[in-house]
C-alpha cells in the first residue's frame, strides 16, 4: 500500500504560479465569482475564491534588505488530520493511502473542517460554481466506493472542496500499471502541480518506498514541515536553506 507524500523545494520555487493554474485546470476548480470581483474593486474585498493550490507570500527583513518568501500550499494530507474528526457527517475522511478526501454529495456545508484546519487548505463554495467553458472541463474522473464522483467532479454551491493529491491521476497510473502487468514505480504518478513546475521544485511519490525521490528528499538536512508543533504530521515536506 503506497503512502503518498510530497516534497516542495522552496529554494527552487520562483513563485511563477504555474502550479496554481495547472491545479485549477486539472481539478475543475471554479473561477472567481463576478460579484466578488466587483466587490473587490468597490467596497470591501471578501475572499470567496477557491484555490486547492495557492502560493502564499510573506515579506521579511527591513530596508535596505527586504525579502519576500513564497510558500506553495497544497493540502498537507496530515497523518492526524484535525479536519476529519470534527466533520459531523463523515463527509471528509482519510483513505488507506493517506489521502484526505471530501465527499461532495454528503457535505452539509457547516465549514467546521475549514475552521479546524490550521493550514487553511479547505475551500467553501460561497456561490454556485461557474464553469465559463463547460467544454473545457477536465474529463479526468474518480469515483469513491459509494459511486460518488470526487476530485475533479464538478461541484455545487454550499459544500467544501480541497486538494486530493490528484487522486484521478493516481488511479489512472494504477490502471495503466495493472494493464501492463507491473507494479507502480516511482515517477508513475505525477500530480498536476508537479508536472507543470518549471524549476521542478515539487516532487510527488510513495513514502513507503525508501528508494523513491520523495523518501530521499524527505531526509534532506533542509527538510521541515509546516506547524510541526501541532502534531498533525503532514505528508508534505518543505526544503529550505532558511
Amino acid at each position: 500500500m503506497p503512502k503518498w507524500g510530497m516534497v516542495i523545494d522552496l529554494d527552487k520555487c520562483t513563485a511563477c504560479q504555474a502550479c496554481v493554474v495547472a491545479c485549477k485546470q486539472e481539478n475543475n476548480v471554479p473561477s472567481g465569482h463576478l460579484d466578488d470581483a466587483a466587490k473587490a474593486r468597490g467596497e470591501v474585498h471578501r475572499d470567496h475564491d477557491i484555490f486547492w493550490m495557492r502560493v502564499l507570500t510573506q515579506a521579511k527583513g527591513e530596508y535596505p534588505k527586504p525579502e519576500i518568501e513564497f510558500l506553495p500550499r497544497p493540502c498537507q494530507h496530515c497523518e492526524k488530520p484535525p479536519c476529519v474528526s470534527v466533520c459531523p457527517v463523515e463527509a471528509t475522511y482519510r483513505n488507506e493511502e493517506g489521502l484526505v478526501l471530501q465527499r461532495y454529495d454528503r457535505c452539509i456545508g457547516c465549514r467546521y473542517c475549514m475552521v479546524a484546519c490550521p493550514y487553511g487548505v479547505r475551500n467553501f463554495n460561497w456561490h454556485e460554481p461557474e464553469y465559463p467553458m463547460p467544454q473545457a472541463l477536465s474529463p479526468a474522473a474518480s469515483v469513491d466506493s459509494d459511486g460518488n464522483g470526487r476530485g475533479p467532479q464538478p461541484r455545487v454551491r454550499g459544500i467544501v472542496e480541497k486538494c486530493t493529491f490528484c487522486i484521478q491521476r493516481i488511479e489512472e497510473a494504477k490502471r495503466k500499471a495493472q494493464a501492463e502487468g507491473r507494479p507502480l514505480k516511482d515517477g508513475d504518478v505525477q500530480t498536476a502541480c508537479m508536472q507543470t513546475c518549471p524549476p521542478t521544485a515539487i516532487v510527488f511519490g510513495d513514502l513507503d518506498d525508501p528508494n523513491s525521490r520523495v523518501s530521499k528528499l524527505r531526509t534532506d538536512r533542509r527538510a521541515f514541515r509546516l506547524l510541526e508543533d501541532l502534531g498533525t504530521n503532514p505528508r508534505v515536506t518543505y526544503l529550505s536553506e532558511g
Partner: peptide, 11 residues
Amino acid sequence: QGLGVTGMNQT
C-alpha cells in the same frame, strides 16, 4: 444564491 450573499468568507 449561496452563502456568498453573507459577509462570511474564507477567513
